[in-house]
Each structure stands twice: as structure tokens, then as C-alpha cells.
Design a protein around this nucleic acid. Structure first.
Lengths: 339, 339
DNA sequence: TTTATAGTTGGAATCGATTCCAAAAATGAA
DNA sequence: TTCATTTTTGGAATCGATTCCAACTATAAA
């Protein structure tokens, strides 16, 4: 398969210079005579020499790699955006990513951490697949670590999370801007659950209503489970209210699927009869739904990018939580009642 | 942050043994007296010593890492299964994965390959996000490379692809087994397109009909574009046929969404009036659809796993194409007409 | 007790780069 | 031409593990 690998010694001998000079050429050290540099470069090219990263790392004590531990990539399609963002940023910095899926198993996570420490990664990004609290072993303190889409109770590591409140508020405001006043919300989990998503989005919903002087009707706030089936049922109930909503804010695109279904089964059309806004911007759903669903996007790619940039920015040492806005993706599921 | 890193010398000194002995303990060499082994292990534990992977790699000339170049992870949710499978297999072999998303850009791909060669990866997995032909630069021949979900025209590398024909055939047979005779198929792309998916699935459809002695009705084979909107239209047309189908095979779960929608808009119910089978097992869709969609799964996780296993199996040297079956995932969108 | 054998152990050499210091070469000033 | 200074160069030492050989110790057999 591969012919013999050349070393810096081979190049030095072939170019009739010292190894130091070759190294200098490799590293673009300015203290090399132009003629010499050329000569060396030619030999390098001719032999197709590839420097050994391993040897370099050993000597310089820099691995140029960053560990990326993901909580459970296979469960959600969001993982890819996170990885893509991190990946892009890493490339810009000339680093490579060592990715491992710890599959939500704390033991696997520790093992992953261990093999990364062995490889002397320059830092670690720990990414959860949905906004949640995590507890990390003390070992994570032995290397710079940043958290994505999660946080530790004691705020021991810098973290990045989506701005659920702003997302919920903007979603609701979009509906209000289109002159909706009876706006239902289907939450994605119990308000009492430990996950910040439902709580934050609901808070945003309340704030938006309040600022618009719309009274909150408790009949219009329902709690689902994130899936379409329950949302279907809830939507049916919502529409059989004496004063049904003109718009529904589904805290999950998956739930919006159920809502679409329920509305259509009632012979109602979207958005003529009822407007819908989702949350998550899960492309497969939002784009394929008929009509395409307006929804709030989760800033996964941005958070992934940020995590690497932040990790490599030596000047940063705080462990604060960075909050990323969720942008509105307008499609066609909202009708302007004022028009 | 991290206190000083200990080296094997520190351990040797502290345990009052030679470095060779420490190394032997580290590598579970049987030729060490039990008492000595214990003594050394204690020191290792006490100091929290982590061997340097870099130094080890340099000496043993084994990087214990495998490069994973993905074509464009962000475009499809399937990437995660591929990564998960590869990841699992790599862990079993004690290897780590260096993952880069080359985003469909040949230049990025070459750069990724180069940084991986520098890091002396033991092999490379090149994964496409849907079954297709790819052309790789000659440089990929300098390191063992295996292809996933794609192939080169000249079959220069071993590759793994899903068995589209079997998938199409099994899907159709499932419908036939449930006593359907008028089975429509909505293809996911032109039969003339270079992508093997539509062609293979269609071939499987034909074979299944033939074996069951059902005559193929050209009116029942339509070509979509993979998305729901067009499938919606096609389904409407299909159902207005003089003799409409009792079952529809959608070559994409996304298209099944459109078909569901169309059927419901006609007041038809699934599966009582029309049975549906999809393809891809895109969980977000198949599980959230109402009723849940029976569909053929793409063997991404298996292919990912295989790619690593095959790469590390030194005995293998062939470059044949390995075909992976697409299993049927039964849910609730098919009615048994015989019952 | 001596000798042969098997079991342990220490440590120099090694992997392939970078780094640093001293030496050599080039340049400029007098 | 000489001397001082700057630029360029060669190569030994280094990073932290593994490997291998020689030396040492323990055990068994004679």
C-alpha cells in the first residue's frame, strides 16, 4: 500500500542540509536563505514527504486536537448541526476534532474522557442533545472544558444554551404582530420538569402576551409531551372550546405535526382558519408539512462554533453561561388577521 | 488548571523500579512479579499518572485513530447513525475516530485527507450521505480506505451500500402478503438519474409483482422528487384513477407525508382505505405520522460498524462491494385485506 | 553446595519531529 | 584588508513512551 515514509533526516540528507534547516523550512521560519528554502521544498515535494504529526506533538506538547463528547448523537437530528459548527470552527483554527458519542452512559463518558486525556487534547467540548442540566466528574476539571446545550448546577464550566425565553416570546409576538389575540400554547413537557425548554418558552409566551396587554387564558395553555399523538388530541379539545384559539404555538415541530393533522381532520385549513408556529426548526418536518411550518430555530450550529472559539480563546476564563437567540424561520403557517 | 503531568520516569523513580518495568506494568506484560506490579500500580494511581498517547504512538508507529470523512453530515439525519455505528466499532477496537465533515467540497476533502495522513491514521472511512457514486483522488490509495453508502466506478476501494433492490422487493412483498394487488409506487427520482436508489427500489417492486403474478400497471408507477409536495399531487391523481390503488409504496418517508396528507384531504383513512409503506425509516416522520408509518430502514448504523471492522481486519484485502439488507420496520400503516 | 534454568529487572537505544547553541558564512564599515 | 555584526546553518539534546538485551535473582535438580 504505502511505500516507505520519509523522515526529516531523509530530506536533510537528500537536500544536503541539516535537519534544523528542514524543520525551519517546514515551519516557515524566516531565517532561511531563499535559495536553501527552495532547494528543500523541492526535495520535500519530490519525495512526497509528510511530516509526522505525532513526533511534532510529542516535542511541542501540542496535540492540535480537541475532544468532542456528545451525549447521544443518534437520538436527534440536531447533533449534526452542532458537529458541523464545531467542525467549521476547528478547521479555521487548524485543529481536528476527536468525536465520541458517549450514548448517555456516564461510564462511557468517563472512558471517552480518559482516552482523550491520554491523547492530550487541548480542550473538550461536552455537548448534550437537548437543553438540560448535567453533572460531570471532577476529572473534567483537569482540561479546559466547555458545555453546549447544557450546564452544571454549580456553573463550574462555561456553557452555551439556547435562549428559550426569547424564543418563546418572539414566537408569540410573531402571532400577535399578525393580529392574533386568542393564542394557545402546547408545552412540550410539564412546567415542573427539570428541563428548561418548556419553562422558558412558556415564560416568553407570558411576557409577550403581557406586553401586548392580552389577558392570559388558562384554558389555552396545555401541556403535551413533545410528540404528535398527544398534540393531536389536545388540538381537538382546544378547537372545541367555546372560544377556540385563532393561533396555536406548538413548542415542538413534532407536536405541530399532530396539530396539523387534527386541524385538517376537523376540515379546518392552515393558516386560513388557524395559524400555527412551531419550535425547533426540524427541517424534515417543517419543510415537508403542508403548508410549510413557520418555527423558531435552535442555534445549534452557532453554539457548536462558539464552543470551539471560546475554548481556544486563551483570554477567556470566565465560566458564565452564554445564551444564544433562537431565530424565527418564516414559512407559510401564519395568517395575518389584520390584512 | 492541570498540575504537572507525570512521566513514566517519575513513576519509575517513585516506585524505585526501572522505566522498563513501569512500561511492562502499563502494557500488562506477564513477566512482572506480582508484588512489583502492585507497587507500580499504586504509584500510578496515587500520582494520577496518564500515559502519553503521543509518545506511545511515536514509538509504536500506531496512531490508534481512524479518519472518518463525511460528505455532508448536516444535510441528513442519517449521518448520526453512520457515525454511531462507526463509533461503536471503533471503541470496541480501542480506536478513536477523527471525524471531519467535508461538506461536499472536493477541496475540503483533500485537506481533510492531508491532515489525517499527517496524523498517521490507520485507515480512512469515507461516507456519503446517500447512495451514490463518488470519485476520489489517487491520494486515497496511500492509506487503507473504505467507502460507505457510496462506491467508485472502478471499484478501487471496498464499499458498503444498502440493498435497494431487496428493500424495494420486501416492501412490495409486505403489501402483497397483506393481499394487496393494486400497488402504486412513487419513485424518489427519475429512473434515469445516476442515483441507484430509485432504480433499485423500482427493480425490487417489479420483481415482487412478477413473482406474485401480478401484472404491472404502468398507471400505478409515478415518479416524484423525494419531497412531500409533489407526492401530495401524485397521490391525488392516483386516487382519481378509474381503478385506484389499495396500497402505495412511497420510496421516501418524506413523500409518505405528502401521501398521508392527500389521502386525508380526500376523506380517506389510513390504513382502512389505503395502505402505505415508506422507505428510509426517518424516525421523526415515521413515528410521528398518524398512524405510524411502516417503512424500510436504511442500514446506516450497520454500514458504519462494518466499515471500521472491515478496515481493521487485516486479512481482508478485496475491494468488493458489500450490500446490506434494509429491514422492514412494521408500524401501523398497512391493512391486511385478507382478514 | 553447585549448576542449570526460568523468571525478573534495569536502562540504553529508538521513534521523528523541534529547539537551541555554537559555528560558519555573508555583509558592512572602517 | 580587517574586524564587527548579522544572517544562516548544522547537529546534539529533547519530548515520553516501548523494546530489547544483558544482568541479576530465585528455584529446582544433581
Amino acid at each position: 500500500m504505502d511505500s516507505k515514509r520519509y523522515t526529516i533526516q531523509d530530506i536533510a540528507r537528500e537536500a544536503k542540509v541539516g535537519v534544523g534547516t528542514v524543520s525551519r523550512v517546514l515551519n516557515n521560519d524566516p531565517n532561511v536563505k531563499e535559495a536553501t528554502r527552495l532547494k528543500v521544498k523541492q526535495v520535500i515535494k519530490r519525495l512526497g514527504y509528510q511530516p509526522s504529526f505525532t513526533a511534532r506533538s510529542l516535542r511541542t506538547q501540542k496535540s492540535q486536537t480537541i475532544g468532542f463528547i456528545a451525549d447521544n448523537v443518534a437520538t436527534t437530528p440536531f447533533a449534526v448541526n452542532l458537529i458541523k459548527g464545531a467542525q467549521d470552527a476547528a478547521r479555521r483554527h487548524g485543529k481536528l476534532l476527536l468525536i465520541v458519542d458517549a450514548g448517555n452512559d456516564p461510564q462511557l463518558r468517563e472512558r471517552a474522557l480518559k482516552s482523550m486525556l491520554e491523547r492530550e487534547v487541548e480542550g473538550i467540548v461536552y455537548a448534550a442533545m437537548f437543553h438540560q442540566e448535567v453533572v460531570l466528574s471532577a476529572e473534567f476539571r483537569s482540561v479546559p472544558t466547555v458545555l453546549v446545550d447544557c450546564y452544571t448546577r454549580d456553573k463550574s464550566h462555561p456553557s452555551s444554551v439556547p435562549d428559550e425565553v426569547q424564543g418563546g416570546k418572539d414566537a408569540t409576538e410573531e402571532l400577535i404582530k399578525n393580529k392574533h389575540k386568542r393564542i394557545a400554547i402546547i408545552l412540550n413537557s410539564e412546567l415542573s420538569s427539570p428541563h428548561p425548554a418548556a419553562k422558558g418558552r412558556y415564560q416568553g409566551y407570558c411576557e409577550a402576551l403581557e406586553e401586548a396587554n392580552i389577558e392570559l387564558d388558562p384554558k389555552l395553555v396545555r401541556t403535551g409531551d413533545g410528540d404528535s399523538a398527544l398534540s393531536f388530541k389536545i388540538t381537538l379539545e382546544l378547537m372545541s372550546l367555546a372560544k377556540p384559539p385563532t393561533a396555536i404555538f406548538c413548542c415542538t415541530d413534532r407536536m405541530a405535526m399532530g396539530t396539523y393533522d387534527a386541524l385538517k381532520s376537523l376540515g379546518l385549513s392552515i393558516p386560513q382558519d388557524v395559524s400555527i408556529i412551531g419550535f425547533d426548526n426540524q427541517e424534515v418536518i417543517a419543510e415537508q408539512l403542508h403548508p410549510p411550518l413557520s418555527t423558531m430555530a435552535l442555534p445549534h450550529e452557532k453554539m457548536g462554533r462558539w464552543s470551539i472559539d471560546y475554548l481556544l480563546d486563551k483570554s477567556q476564563t470566565s465560566t458564565e453561561q452564554h445564551v444564544f437567540p433562537c431565530p424565527l424561520i418564516k414559512r407559510a403557517s401564519i395568517k395575518d388577521l389584520g390584512a
